[in-house]
Design a protein around this nucleic acid. Structure first.
Length: 567
RNA sequence: UGACCCAUGGUGUAAUUGGCAACACGUCUGAUUUUGGUUCAGAAGAGUCCAGGUUCGAGCCCUGGUGGGUCAACCA
């Protein structure tokens, strides 16, 4: 018998990318004892977002593929921006995504003493000097990308003077901005980063880990490569904007190395997603100015926001695999992300009937006090999830949008004298439409076909429409939060003259407070995933109380009817 | 008036040492369906930024353009 290839995404081998090719070449050349050791190096100055997830999946994925290791390293060299709160959220998010750094948790700040000693060594070798000029002057002397810079008058101080001055900087003798330590490289280099870069600056700020023990802090360029080196990193993967830093990265490594081992920087393009922003600065602005409820607002592209929204780690990892890794600056359509989460939730989500916008239906030929228990499938994609009981009675709620008094062509839901099936229940026919004094439809009177239970009908007739419903007296009242994209523009931060906040979508959050759900949702735990049948995927928000469950809509179901209606 | 990087359907990516441009999302049909979901079957959509060159043969190699990105923080 021919076997069908049902290779799922989870099992499918990851597509090779250009980094794999480079690692393969390094391995073939026998570099670094054929080790592969990567690291994920966030600065703890904000919450992680979906772009970081791409980097996390890449770095940890590489280690998995090559039998190597991945470190988690906090790049905490700027005490003015960094906080312990961020450190904690980052660790939580990486773990939640499903990755484990085992015992390899590092901080750049762990290396402050070694970094300082290395700076002293450079001074001794005549490769670094203390500059007394202010930031503005130094900047002017840097020149422009087109024009070479000029040398600082302090460039040729004696080793002894530099040693003395740097020591006094370290002891806190000078104020912020009075002096900096610079590497002596090449003020005429076509690469701005090689024009005597600043490697240490005076900062009298409290560091979230080292407190007040330091008055001088290393710059990123003077810390990152060295940390890579000391941690034994072989492939230091970062985003494209660091490409021009690579010569400097290599320069410091050359000063440091004492064997054949040499880490190597490789750059890839960061993730851009439509209808959102992805810079920590802008996300922080949204949080600080209360445009959203916090870093974990379900509308945010942060890992914590996506988690609260109802995304699963699997769906994010899967998305990450799908988008691949290249050096092309692009813009990924958010529909790819939405596909990933639907795809996963379809397989795992418990089904439930939920009426978001209720319309009362009285089944006039159903006995007043009768109640029945109907049986519903928990997940048609997964038999092992079993079935559940759903109570049925004379008065039910259906969705307002499932009834039209004057239905258009191809509308196969309820209308006057039309018949639909109540999912898992009976066929009902609408006989009477009750309106209030304003003409608004407030209630429907229907009759049911007692022979139609369980998919049959008394005479074999079939109906096209199936609607979800809830027994009015059993239903649990809930709040439901519907989310839409945070911005109305595909690239809100791509407009030169308009602030990205001008494009914020005023309807990005819609709160429905008159929703009904099956009774069993009372037992749900925060973040549990559900599919509200015919509506979308939802999860239980931590804001829920025993009296009032609150649900977030993760993503709507695909809806070909709504799509057809738009045309 | 520089250095470095990038360019393949609408979007994201593939394409062994040069060998019929493939996959996914999205879009559109149709079938199945007690979710207008899922699943299944199928379709449309690029000739690979441009111009030369090498070659039997170029998305891939070479040359020159064009377009885009990054770099002039005591941020990372």
């Amino acid at each position: 018998m021919a076997e069908k290839n049902t290779n799922t995404n989870a099992e499918a081998p990851k597509k090779a990318n250009f980094i794999h090719a480079q690692i393969d070449a390094d391995l073939a050349a026998g570099k670094n004892d054929k080790r592969v050791h990567t690291r994920f190096p966030p600065e703890p100055n904000g919450y992680l977002h979906i772009g970081h997830a791409k980097s996390i999946c890449l770095n940890f994925g590489l280690a998995q593929k090559y039998g190597g290791k991945t470190n988690l390293r906090f790049d905490d060299t700027n005490p003015s921006k960094e906080e312990t709160e961020y450190v904690e959220s980052i660790m939580e998010d990486v773990r939640w995504l499903g990755f484990d750094w085992e015992d390899r948790l590092f901080y750049a700040s762990d290396n402050f003493p070694k970094l300082h000693a290395f700076a002293v060594k450079l001074i001794e070798e005549g490769k670094a000097y203390v500059d007394d000029q202010n930031a503005e002057t130094i900047s002017e002397q840097k020149g422009t990308p087109q024009k070479p810079g000029t040398e600082s008058p302090f460039r040729n101080r004696s080793v002894q003077t530099n040693l003395d001055l740097f020591e006094r900087m370290t002891m806190g003798e000078f104020n912020e901005g009075e002096k900096v330590l610079r590497a002596k490289i090449d003020m005429a280099s076509p690469n701005m980063h090689m024009r005597d870069p600043i490697i240490y600056r005076i900062m009298k700020a409290e560091h979230h880990r080292t407190g007040n023990s330091w008055c001088v802090y290393p710059m990123y360029d003077f810390a990152h490569g060295q940390c890579d080196y000391w941690e034994g990193i072989t492939h230091s993967i970062c985003t494209l904007e660091f490409e021009v830093h690579r010569p400097l990265y290599d320069w410091f490594i050359t000063q440091l190395m004492d064997s054949d081992y040499r880490p190597r920087q490789i750059e890839f393009s960061r993730l851009n997603l439509t209808y959102t922003v992805m810079s920590k600065r802008k996300l922080l602005e949204l949080v600080k100015d209360n445009h959203v409820r916090g870093w974990d607002d379900p509308r945010m592209p942060t890992i914590s926001g996506l988690r609260r929204r109802g995304y699963t780690p699997e769906s994010i990892r899967n998305f990450s695999d799908k988008i691949g890794v290249t050096k092309v600056d692009g813009m990924t359509d958010v529909s790819l992300l939405e596909f990933s989460v639907r795809d996963h939730l379809n397989k795992i989500a418990q089904r439930v009937m939920g009426v978001l916008d209720p319309l009362k239906v009285v089944i006039t030929n159903y006995p007043e006090d009768k109640e029945e228990i109907l049986s519903a499938v928990n997940n048609p994609e997964d038999e092992s999830m079993g079935r559940r009981d759903v109570p049925f009675s004379r008065e039910v709620y259906i969705e307002q949008s499932d009834f039209m008094e004057d239905p258009p062509r191809k509308f196969f839901r309820l209308g006057p004298d039309r018949e639909v099936r109540l999912r898992y229940g009976y066929l009902i026919k609408c006989n009477e439409v009750i309106k209030d004094e304003n003409g608004k439809i407030v209630e429907l009177h229907c009759t049911y076909d007692p022979e139609s239970k369980g998919g049959k009908s008394s005479d074999g007739r079939k109906v096209k429409g199936v609607v979800h419903w809830l027994s009015a007296k059993h239903a649990v009242k809930s709040e439901v939060r519907l989310y839409d994209r945070l911005f109305t523009d595909e690239e809100p931060d791509a407009h030169k003259d308009v602030d990205f906040k001008e494009f914020m979508n005023p309807d990005s959050l819609k709160v429905l407070d008159n929703c009904y759900l099956e009774p069993f949702v009372k037992t749900a735990k925060a973040l549990d995933h559900f599919q509200f049948e015919r509506t979308g995927y939802f999860n239980l928000d931590p804001d829920s109380t025993p009296e009032l469950p609150v649900f977030n809509r993760t993503v709507p179901l695909r809806d070909s009817w709504a799509k057809a209606q738009k045309k």
